[in-house]
Amino acid sequence: MTTFHIAPLNNDITAALQHKIDSKTKPIGSLGQLEKLALQIGRIQQTQTPALNKPTIVVFAGDHGVAHEGVSPFPQEVTYQMVFNFLQGGAAINVFTKQNGIAIKVVDAGVNFDFNQHPGLVHAKVALGTKSFLHEAAMTPAQCETAIERGAAVVKELHEQGCNVIGFGEMGIANTSAAAVIMSLLCDIPLEQCIGRGTGLDDEGLIRKKVILAESMIRHNKIEKTPLNVLSTFGGFEIAMMCGAMLQAAAAGMLILVDGFITTSALLVAAKINEQILDYCLFTHQSNEQGHSLMLAHLKAVPLLSLGMRLGEGTGAAVAYPVIQAAVSFLNEMASFESAGVSNKA
């Protein structure tokens, strides 16, 4: 297993940062969560004048064998079709990244389709989708390790190019099923509370999904519930790549923008491997997918937004990015009582 060395945040700068925030021309605490965000970003970057450089959202795509068991209303082909949509700039994530000046990178982590070379696509395919975890492990330990390493390599290259703030998105039909089981096992939460409607299952479909996932957990109930065992047994190549990408981002001291249900399941695995990663994470929104609020509570995370979104792709991270910019801007540009000649309270 690749080892990621994630440094705990140095608290030496905390008091100076808090003083700078409190000295701005406003009542103490009046910018609410923006103040906490500014403090966290300043601590991550170890500076009183943080900067957001070359923000990027990486969308990892992978297929899941369990899709063939009827756990999603959409056919597996939608995964590769949406990859083409990303590459053509037609998806929601393309719209929101363009609006907010964020670069986008699309990665084939393990889509069941052979793509030709495309300048906008990173070819990191481990296999043509995972196996169905209803019958066998989704991937081998070696495949899981490969996915983690390739995800880390994508981030390492972006960091070397000057990126210091990175978000993650995903595409993979049936990946809410994988995330629900990962969540149940790693958070020790009953499976029933982790399963949602995904891309829009009706009541009958939801019942089938619950039955399939419960049977899958029974089939694999003898596995040792380590983070990597759970990931390789039930995860997807895109989830494993995000896990490695997040660990690498934290090791490089980058800000990590955490999106919704699937992305948080990848972070959950990463945090069980090295909990220091959580100090580098900004939780951008609470997904409307059942289970996400419980997963966030398990991680003691407070999301920036709650807009009823459940699309994935990194859309929550992209939509929340202006809020993160606002936190950095007020810290860097807002006058202090002293510099503005404004009387502070007696």
Rank of each mutant, 00 (worst) to 15 (best):
A61N: 11
A67K: 08
N53R: 15
V78D: 08
P73M: 05
H68P: 01
A61C: 15
Q46F: 04
F74A: 12
E35Y: 01
S72P: 02
I41V: 13
Q81M: 15
L37N: 01
F74S: 14
Q48A: 15
V59E: 01
P73R: 01
V71R: 12
Q46W: 05
Q40L: 06
R43M: 14
K54S: 11
T49V: 14
T49S: 15
I57H: 08
G70Y: 05
I44C: 02
L37R: 00
G62D: 04
A51D: 08
A67E: 09
T47N: 07
D63W: 06
T47L: 02
L52F: 09
A67Q: 10
F60I: 02
Q48G: 12
T56K: 12
Q48M: 14
P55M: 09
L39W: 04
G70M: 00
I41H: 00
Q45W: 02
E69M: 10
R43K: 11
E69R: 10
L52T: 08
Q48T: 15
L52V: 07
Q45C: 04
S72A: 14
H64M: 09
P55E: 09
A67Y: 09
G65K: 03
H68K: 13
L39C: 13
T79G: 09
A51N: 06
T79S: 09
A67F: 05
Q76S: 15
Q76Y: 06
V66W: 06
R43T: 14
Q76I: 13
E35K: 01
I57L: 00
P50T: 10
I41W: 04
V78W: 11
V66D: 06
E69F: 05
V59Q: 06
S72L: 08
Q45P: 02
L52Q: 08
E77I: 15
L37C: 01
A67T: 13
A51M: 09
P73C: 01
D63G: 14
S72N: 07
Q46N: 15
K36E: 08
E77N: 11
Q81D: 12
S72V: 08
D63E: 06
E69V: 10
Y80C: 00
A61L: 03
H68I: 13
P73N: 13
F74L: 15
G42W: 02
E69G: 05
V58L: 05
P50F: 02
P73K: 13
F60S: 03
E77Q: 15
T79H: 10
Q81G: 02
F60L: 04
A38D: 02
F74K: 11
Q81K: 14
K54I: 08
P73E: 08
A67W: 12
A38H: 04
V59C: 12
E35C: 04
